[in-house]
Amino acid sequence: MTALTTAPPVRRPGRSKRLKASTLLERPNFVVYGILIAFILGSAFPFYWSFLVASYDANVFTGDVPLIPGGNFLVNANRVVDSIPFWKALGNSVVVSGTVTLSVVLFSSLAGFAFAKLRFRGSKGLMLFVIATLAVPTQLGVIPLFMAMAEFGWSGTLGAVIAPNLVTAFGVFWMRQYIVDAVPNELIEAARMDGCSLLRTFWHVCLPAVRPAAAMLGVFTFMQSWNDFLWPLIVLNPEDPTIQVALEKLQSGYYVDYSLVLAGTTMATVPVLLVFLVLGRQIVAGIMQGAVKG
């Protein structure tokens, strides 16, 4: 096990000094801020650009958009709400992505914990199997999956969008890799000594320790589910869609009114940003808590 030897020298007791979190993490200088600002500007540009286009009218030329927003965003937002079932679709997407996210995070943590810390027959092979399923291209899957959903009588329902995404191999693999190092075995052994069942051990020892990773997985899963297009398009009825399917309707016509389309996509991003804020805090809270209590 090479993992054992990768660790740095063990801290000698007695030499420990209480250090503040801020001394532990490097204090970034202006170079760091400069690089990050450049990075964020590059990352946020298309986002801002979408907003710019959305703030003008249908005549805006996408090849040369002014960098100062125009005053038409609310007008376009109203047009979006008038031309597609925006709120209904938004609600559907919240239900779908919310359920999928909760489920993926919970089940991935459970399975990840089992694979990382518990010994059971076949664990090695099963883990490889999980990873292998990641490598299956999904594009052709829509046909048999639709056949299955039609068979179950689920097509046209949100359940048909939720069910195939309740667990992901990506999530299991991620939580497994994180838990391997982030949850000390001693802690688990201690909990077992105290007579905790595996489930209690998971709940009280593992889960708190993996909050940053779980929050991260939550952010990714929510984003992915929120942006999913092809499968909901196939399996849902257009009159009761998720938000991405509804937004697609804005692109009808022989020419696209980008001020309308991008107003729609900008509005549809707000819930994702909220999730970023809420779960993003969790990611940070994870280390801050460790720093304070530790």
Binding site: M1, A7, P8, V10, M127, V205
Partner: peptide
């Protein structure tokens, strides 16, 4: 190999005090 599939028996450092809630 082991990195992916085996359960390591320890990390070689003292465990972090439990951040148990």
């Amino acid at each position: 190999t082991a990195d992916l599939t085996e359960v390591p028996s320890g990390r070689g450092v003292e465990p972090r005090p439990p951040v148990r809630r």
